[in-house]
């Protein structure tokens, strides 16, 4: 028993030593060091986002310390604390959830390490906690989704029943996409959201929840999914119910991953509101500006489009993710 214990301690020491070696290369050679804490790898979108950041860091000659939070806030806070200890030049992260960041960001501020938010915002009264927020406007994405629907049902007064697959409860895209969508459809009482549940941004959950929706509600006209993966899962559920996705139930989705474009060319998704993950180059520019002490605006919005089924075939070959 004691022998086992000694072995474990020895192993732990070796592992610690390796980690320490990994740390010591930070700074030193004059390169900018960027600590980035990613949400996780929950969808194709996120993977494209990660890749864009990694590639553009290499191109820009910035040393990137990358950490995957596996969709847990505590991991992300841990990662940010590690970055602070390692004295990186800039910290950037996509917050898993909106709230609960004040303490750790104050620690960063005390050490004078600038923080950049990417892709998702935080809910804090103290805007001095971060330099800038680079990312999509999720509320606008919600509005665009709804605007397409308003246009598509123009001229008819028939009621339109909508089911909604929300993202991870409490996350910025889920809250904002819901809000933007509701804001636009509120204007016309013919639109009714009859069911709204979280599908955790995953295919499996999207399918499971959609199956339950289909059983509970017989007259669904429109599905609004907060991301493509949930929409793709829901499509399978709709097909198994003997209905035609895109025809019997119109599908609106957000993100614009390749699989969604494929589904759109097959007529299974009606419209995809793009949410651009390729913000690496923009991020690296901002990092350099922040290190040089230049002023940056508090909010930088990425460029995005809306794709309908008839544009899908033309756009498909250009999709990188």
């Amino acid at each position: 028993m004691r022998k086992t214990l000694t072995t474990i301690i020895a192993l732990a020491l070796v592992a610690g030593g390796v980690a320490a070696c990994g740390n010591s290369d930070s700074g030193g050679d004059g390169k900018i060091v960027l600590g980035f804490s990613q949400v996780g790898a929950e969808s194709g979108w996120r993977t494209a986002n990660t890749k864009s950041i990694q590639d553009s860091a290499k191109e820009a000659g910035i040393t990137l310390k990358f950490s995957d939070a596996q969709q847990k806030q505590e991991n992300q806070i841990k990662a940010i604390r590690t970055f602070i200890q390692q004295k990186v030049d800039v910290i950037a992260f996509s917050p898993v959830v909106e709230s609960g960041w004040d303490t750790v960001l104050k620690e960063a501020k005390a050490k004078k390490i600038p923080v950049i938010l990417t892709d998702r915002a935080i809910d804090s009264k103290d805007t001095s906690l971060y330099k800038t927020f680079l990312g999509s406007d999720f509320v606008e994405e919600g509005r665009r989704s709804a605007q397409w629907l308003v246009k598509a049902t123009e001229g008819s007064t028939d009621p339109v029943t909508i089911v909604e697959l929300q993202g991870t409860t409490g996350s910025a895209p889920a809250i904002d996409r819901k809000e933007g969508f509701a804001e636009v459809i509120k204007a016309d009482p013919k639109f009714q959201i009859i069911a709204s549940q979280t599908g955790d941004f995953t295919r499996a959950k999207g399918k499971e929840v959609m199956q339950a929706f289909l059983k509970a509600h017989k007259d669904i006209d429109v599905l609004y999914a907060h991301n493509d993966d949930m929409a793709l899962g829901a499509i399978q559920a709709i097909e198994e119910a003997g209905l035609k996705p895109g025809t019997d139930i119109k599908i609106i989705s957000v993100d614009g991953v390749k699989d969604a474009f494929v589904a759109m060319t097959e007529g299974k998704i009606n419209v995809v509101v793009e949410c651009n993950p390729l913000l690496g180059p923009q991020l690296m520019d901002i990092v350099k500006k922040v290190v040089d002490g230049q002023e940056t605006p508090q909010r930088i919005v990425t460029e995005e489009g809306v794709f309908t089924a008839d544009q899908a075939a033309a756009a498909l070959p250009n999709r990188k993710y």
Binding site: T169, G170, S196, Q197, T198, E208, A212, A216
Partner: peptide
């Protein structure tokens, strides 16, 4: 329990 929660429409915040 999961299926019931989806069908009766419990708000996701309280699930």
């Amino acid at each position: 329990l999961s299926t019931t929660i989806y069908t009766i429409g419990v708000p996701p915040e309280t699930t």
